[in-house]
Design a protein around this nucleic acid. Structure first.
Lengths: 198, 198
DNA sequence: ACGTCAAGACGGACCGTCTCGTCTCGTCTC
DNA sequence: GAGACGAGACGAGACGGTCCGTCTTGACGT
């Protein structure tokens, strides 16, 4: 009855897939999230609309995949610095994160992704699993190392530590409620470590 | 709802204004943000579309005003509890906030507003000034009282304290990255107070 | 009389679906 | 192997929808 034949992955055109993902990223950073339409992506990629609808269920999924592809390219830079000084390492990382957020080139796509995630629980789950998850694990690994070195309370809830470190930064950026200075990043690290010191 | 030179404000129909704002809130909590269109609002409110476009510049502005009206009604309940025990008071408030977020009736409109704010800097500024600002001031007043009672470091940056208290909660809810239990709210308060204790 | 009002027509942008005819494949036959 | 065949993905774009933001109409209130 259901002639809902699923597409055959092995016959998929890698060229079209890349073109669509590249066009998506280009359009988002050029004209912004709101004005990026499926039609525009298809035209830019030199692709039929059906080729997009065949492989992705929604605009959010396309945006998500264009991100996933980007992060997979930069897989190597996943390891966080571990000089033995947790506070110094965290300050370095949080300052870098703050600087990234300040760059419009990075900011626009992340806002686009955030917008989709807020209104699509399924996409949110995928985001946590495939993008945020691995990064958070790397961060928690560094915290655990600090824990073993006695720079963090042994019973500290690492998920909570992570949230207290990053959530204020994310929120300040997302809602544009304040400046993202290196001093702010430092204050965040200092306060969080004070809360969870051994 | 900013600078309207052309239309004559004194002739504006209060009945239509209320009907539009009420219909907006009703639609958002019924069918969700994405499916709430200006046309649907006009039909629901029994109002011509032009009456909306005459007084509001965008869908985001209508949504924002429907919120503003709501918060102005509940102006009285702005004062936070002050029993003298800062930790207990904060736990009470954060638990209540967590419970509010868990209620779909509240959640949907706040997500809608958040979506608009992320992609509209001007709306974000208005949000901070007219909605978040006063609430944050009330919260900071309670923190200041705790500071004077010696329950918080005298040199604590109250903006930072506020962010460390609320941002993790907001982020967890916005991205659905974890449960919002009373225990979580308590842990957040305890960790934050530990970071800023005298 | 004037300006706002409800109602809705209008052109335009995109949506998601649906053909087209073309271009790749793997398979089957000789 | 070589050529014919068929399944299915492809680019292109027409189609009926929804919603946008503007514009027109006639009723109503002051």
């Amino acid at each position: 009855m259901t002639s809902d034949t699923k597409p055959n992955r092995s016959r998929r055109s890698e060229k079209s897939r890349r073109a669509i993902l590249d066009a998506t990223r280009a359009l988002i950073s050029e004209v912004g999230y709101a004005k990026t339409s499926i039609e525009a992506i298809a035209a830019r990629a030199g692709v039929g609309k059906q080729t997009i609808y065949r492989w992705w269920p929604s605009k959010g999924a396309v945006i998500f995949d264009s991100f996933l592809a980007l992060s997979e390219e930069a897989e190597g830079g996943m390891a966080l610095p571990d000089t033995g000084d947790l506070e110094a390492d965290l300050k370095l990382v949080l300052r870098a994160t703050a600087a990234e957020f300040a760059d419009p080139e990075f900011a626009a796509p992340i806002r686009a992704l955030g917008t989709e995630i807020i209104n699509d629980p399924e996409l949110a789950a995928q985001y946590r699993e495939k993008l945020a998850g691995p990064v958070d694990e790397a961060k928690k690994a560094r915290l655990r190392s600090g824990q073993e070195a006695g720079q963090l309370a042994a019973d500290a809830d690492l998920d909570l530590v992570l949230e207290m470190l990053y959530a204020p930064l994310s929120q300040r950026w997302l809602y544009r409620s304040g400046p993202l200075t290196p001093e702010y990043a430092d204050a965040l690290v200092e306060a969080t470590l004070r809360a969870f010191r051994p």
